[in-house]
Computed example of a mutant assay.
Amino acid sequence: MTDSMLSTIEKIKLQEQEQEAKLKEKREYETNITSLQRSIRDTLTLKEKLHDEEKALNERILKLASQIEVEKIKNKAIKSEVESLKKELEGLKRDINNNISNVWEIRSSYCEAVKQTSDEYDVWALLIKPVCTEPIVRNNTPEKEIFSNEGRLQTAIERREKALAERNRLLAEPDAGSEFVRIKNALRYLDEKVASLRN
């Protein structure tokens, strides 16, 4: 082989190597382009998905904001109702205290009246028939009437003892009275009701 042929062969080989290198580079470019296109498609899909999620989140935020406003209005209404109930409760407490005072004043006046009556009058003298000042010619009172007077006297004594016991009970400490206990329980129930409404 001559030198010209060898140089031609070398040139051809170099050309083939260059073509192979260009083909390889072209394939890499195409691969990169395909990869980039796939990445772009994925990015666009993700962008659409994120856009939809953002839209849904914005709608949810608006809905929650409206719910918050509604809850604020409800809370305001409940607070005003609680304040109204507190004022009403205070009024009821004042009325109950006034009524309790009136009841105990009435009881005290009754006790005082009973005491004055029992102190001023001799119950025995009121229950027993007055003795006639004129001389009695004959004494023929039947035994039945005597027993009847004794029975009435015993009944009067029992009534007097009951009245004294009732007077002493009414003069005792008012906290032990049934009305006071009932009113106190009612006040405690109202306090618990108001406390539950606050919570």
Rank of each mutant, 00 (worst) to 15 (best):
S148H: 11
T141G: 05
I78N: 02
N102E: 07
Q154R: 15
K55G: 00
Q154Y: 07
K24N: 03
A77G: 13
N99S: 13
K79A: 06
K47L: 07
I128M: 07
L89C: 01
E16L: 12
L64A: 04
L57Y: 02
D119V: 09
K13I: 03
A163N: 04
N102I: 05
A113D: 09
T155L: 14
T45D: 04
I73V: 06
I106F: 09
L127N: 07
C111T: 06
R169P: 05
L36G: 06
I136Y: 01
I9T: 07
R169W: 14
P174V: 10
I9H: 08
S84N: 01
R107F: 12
L46C: 03
G151H: 12
S109G: 09
R169A: 14
S196E: 02
K193Y: 05
A125D: 14
E48H: 10
E28W: 01
A125S: 12
L50H: 09
E28K: 02
M5K: 15
D95W: 08
E20C: 10
L23E: 10
E166M: 08
K144L: 10
K93W: 04
Q67H: 03
L36V: 02
K47I: 09
K26D: 05
N139C: 06
K144N: 08
Y29I: 15
S39Q: 13
K55V: 00
E192Y: 10
R182Q: 05
K115N: 04
E18S: 08
R198W: 01
E20N: 10
H51Y: 00
G91K: 10
S7C: 04
I78A: 03
R188M: 04
L190Q: 03
S178E: 14
V114W: 06
